[in-house]
Design a protein around this nucleic acid. Sequence first.
DNA 1: CTGTTAGCGCATTCAA
DNA 2: TTGAATGCGCTAACAG
Lengths: 332, 332
Amino acid sequence: MNDALKPASEPTLSDVAALAGVSRAIASRALSAQPRPVSADKRERVLHAAEALGYRPNSLARGLANKTVNLVAILVNHIHDLSDLDLFDLLLAEIQAIGKQVIFIRVGAGEDAEDFLRDGVAYHVDAALVFADFADAATVRRMFRNNAVLMLNGHHEPGAPSVTMDEDQGIREAVADAAAKGVRSALLLTGRSMSRVEQARIASFRAAMRQHGIALLGELAGDYSYASGRALAQQIDVDATGAVFCTSDAMAMGVLDAHRRYFPGHAPERFRLYGFDNISLTQFDAYPISSIGADKRDYVAQIVRILNRPAGLARHSEHVLVATRFVPRLTG
Amino acid sequence: MNDALKPASEPTLSDVAALAGVSRAIASRALSAQPRPVSADKRERVLHAAEALGYRPNSLARGLANKTVNLVAILVNHIHDLSDLDLFDLLLAEIQAIGKQVIFIRVGAGEDAEDFLRDGVAYHVDAALVFADFADAATVRRMFRNNAVLMLNGHHEPGAPSVTMDEDQGIREAVADAAAKGVRSALLLTGRSMSRVEQARIASFRAAMRQHGIALLGELAGDYSYASGRALAQQIDVDATGAVFCTSDAMAMGVLDAHRRYFPGHAPERFRLYGFDNISLTQFDAYPISSIGADKRDYVAQIVRILNRPAGLARHSEHVLVATRFVPRLTG
DNA sequence: CTGTTAGCGCATTCAA
DNA sequence: TTGAATGCGCTAACAG
């Protein structure tokens, strides 16, 4: 088939090289981001040819040859928690800023992960960021044919680096705040308890309350959602309960709405209310919930720093802790 | 270098074929998702070998050979609007359900798109879903070396299919509702007016109000955010204004908080308040805002249907309209 | 049904 | 500095 009959398709490096009158190797070097030996005039010709043809390098082919794809996978259970909104937009922006693209993988309840493995649908990526609860590093490594796994779900295994929020710190501050305000008894509303992060939170609350002599009246199992907080709030004995600690802001919002008559003008009348994650919604007037959270910019910066490390994540497994703090608002 | 000295690396198809004692082609066919002619026993041997080696196909190589990568790009300005939470989790799940992976691209204010083009960082994808305001189909096509562009940002160009919410319908219902309740004058709070979608919304509101004899007292320019609604609410003359229509629920939430004294028990006392997008947050007790929106499942289903169409999106440009409806709640 | 061969588009040896 | 040749891992076309 001669050129005239060739179907219109994307120009390749060969086309550029042909138009510029150089070899493919020269064209490749001229177009490379790294400095490569090419004479000035040939470089010029190649660049012009590429421009004229509207040439776009094929990332797949480049990745195959390079074994570096500039692709990062983010594994999540889902993205419908309110706190996700604050985090992922920032994370996405920062990862793109270092020249990588983000492939989002939603593994749902957790069983689906096995499907990914079996079907081999997963991409070969430079690194995998694991927010999903279930996943252990080994599974994720197999999933992505890659050792560069960054654990962000509270697990920290010897082989893989991790960035974890030091939630204990913020929890202690919040409980101390309650104790200082005379709280003697409290209820704890929890989320999905199978999660490592959640278990750590619960343990921290228990320890801090014990330390401050606050009686733990009970633990009610929710699922982080507004609806679960709204429903569980019915079980709160407002006369006996000094404070309600929730492991998500959304649950605290549900509690607040259920008992809003006790928060006239948002001043705590019966019990104090504490949320978790310090989501931006707590800045809305209707939900002035005292909360616990880390500086998201700091958290994301730590993740990106590890991602950007030339050595890669595989070798030395660094475990980074990001500080959280108590953020007082009207309810706490 | 003999096998003993070969560095430990990912097993390839060749390794599987060797272990199974078949050719690479047979191994490839046995591992293929599509039915391919392979004898039962060889297929069995290949599967076992793959299992034993922990073989994972390299999607890059497969894509290169196939020219089909099972990758879909989603272009957004950002993902921090409350309405994004409802949409993208569902969309992600549904796209994965048809065996494709999602690469999220955040183009921010819009200038960054040019950077993507220049740097050629964009991946070769099967299709691009364009939610970002700025982008025209031609730019996106160049960006992804691909003609399969699905416009979801309100633009519908001849070359590219689109799925658009028929917002006019819901807006007419909402305005009719207000008129029926005796509203004679109204204010409109708008978002980023450069967006095609937003311009259409504004036009619909104007037309509907004209039709129902509702005087448009003014248009206040916000940015879809709670904060902008909260701030602009100061300019509302509660004595002269029968209703406030907002082009986002978040702005309506801001208005509600600013004037909450006029909504005791959420019963509209002075003016009626209408939001937009019907986000799930309007189901929270504190923000019972009447809104306008489409069935998200329907909307996503239309998108996935087009994505899944064997013919591809390139040829026939289908323009799908998804119905919106007025959803009355306490404020409207 | 099977194996051989030839690419996909690119980066990188290695001689020249 | 250049260009021919090689290979990344896989699938498709072809012949057997």
